[in-house]
């Protein structure tokens, strides 16, 4: 669409800018403030420069949390994106079952995150949970509250359960927008199912899949509530991802300086990676 150039459009954007600025800029400045100061309580602050940033960037604790975070994010992306696409491809395009499928699949997305955590906790407990009990009956030594490997398995399974539907719904939205004529043309040309997928379906889903990757990437980096209810970062520190670590420092130990510095580094990492995704996405759109 060719847009009119008119700076008065700012008036339309003003309420949004005012509200978001109130919510984003003031708190962000508070964080920036804390990140460069030292306090001994009583609201007395001293200039600390970049001490906290150096401390956080050099601490092994932060490296470990960041490492675990990256492993988690890339594992769930590697599982959820292909799985979601596969399920969307297998879904019927029309008929009475479509709304039923969609409603049932969207259900996990609307459950409060702490309920998701609590639900998976009681589902996976080795003594009273269906999953834990079944796995142990099948001969696996499964206990997610004691063994780090099992905790990771449960965490990833929970995230796949919780968010794969988002990928399915996005991919499905891309698929239903393909006109029937495309498939008929492919049939006349004698295209194999793989060729149809590669040259018709995948290009049509490209845009929505970029959105899916972007959303899943951002949200998996922020995962907090489900995880804190499910394992609380344990056993030990084995599932302590960035946000859990941050809340432990900020609200647990009340180390405001290091917590603020860590917040900013954490936010900048997400911002940088998301900006890369966003730029790629916008470039695709312009083509």
């Amino acid at each position: 669409m060719n847009k009119t150039h008119d700076n008065r459009a700012w008036f339309f954007v003003l309420p949004v800018v005012a509200l978001v600025a109130f919510n984003a800029v003031i708190p962000l400045m508070t964080v920036v403030n804390y990140s460069v100061q030292e306090t001994f309580g009583d609201n007395v602050f001293f200039w600390a420069g970049v001490t906290w940033f150096e401390q956080v960037l050099q601490s092994e604790r932060f490296h470990n949390a960041l490492g675990r975070q990256l492993i988690f994010t890339f594992t769930i992306l590697a599982i959820e994106i292909p799985l979601g696409v596969a399920i969307a491809l297998a879904m019927p395009r029309k008929g009475p079952w479509v709304p039923v499928c969609l409603v049932l699949m969207a259900l996990p997305l609307l459950i409060p995150w702490n309920v998701v955590g609590a639900m998976w906790n009681i589902f996976a407990l080795p003594d009273i949970g269906l999953l834990g009990r079944s796995l142990n009956a099948l001969g696996f030594d499964y206990n997610f509250t004691r063994q780090p490997g099992d905790a990771w398995f449960t965490l990833i399974l929970m995230d796949v359960w919780h968010w794969t539907s988002l990928v399915v719904l996005l991919a499905y939205a891309g698929l239903v927008s393909i006109p029937d004529a495309y498939y008929q043309a492919a049939k006349i040309d004698g295209a194999s199912p793989f060729a149809i997928f590669r040259y018709i379906q995948l290009p049509k889903m490209k845009r929505v899949l970029t959105i899916a990757v972007l959303l899943r990437f951002m949200d998996s980096f922020m995962i907090y509530t489900e995880l804190s209810v499910l394992t609380g970062g344990g056993p030990g520190n084995s599932t302590t991802l960035l946000s859990i670590d941050l809340v432990k420092i900020a609200l647990g130990q009340f180390d405001l300086g290091p917590a603020a510095a860590m917040s900013l580094i954490y936010f900048l990492i997400i911002l940088l990676l998301s900006w890369v995704f966003y730029t790629l996405m916008m470039r695709n759109e312009q083509q």
Binding site: M222, L246, Y266, F267
Partner: peptide
């Protein structure tokens, strides 16, 4: 993209 954990205290 802002993690709620960052904004909780402010």
């Amino acid at each position: 993209m802002a993690p709620p954990a960052v904004f909780a205290l402010p």
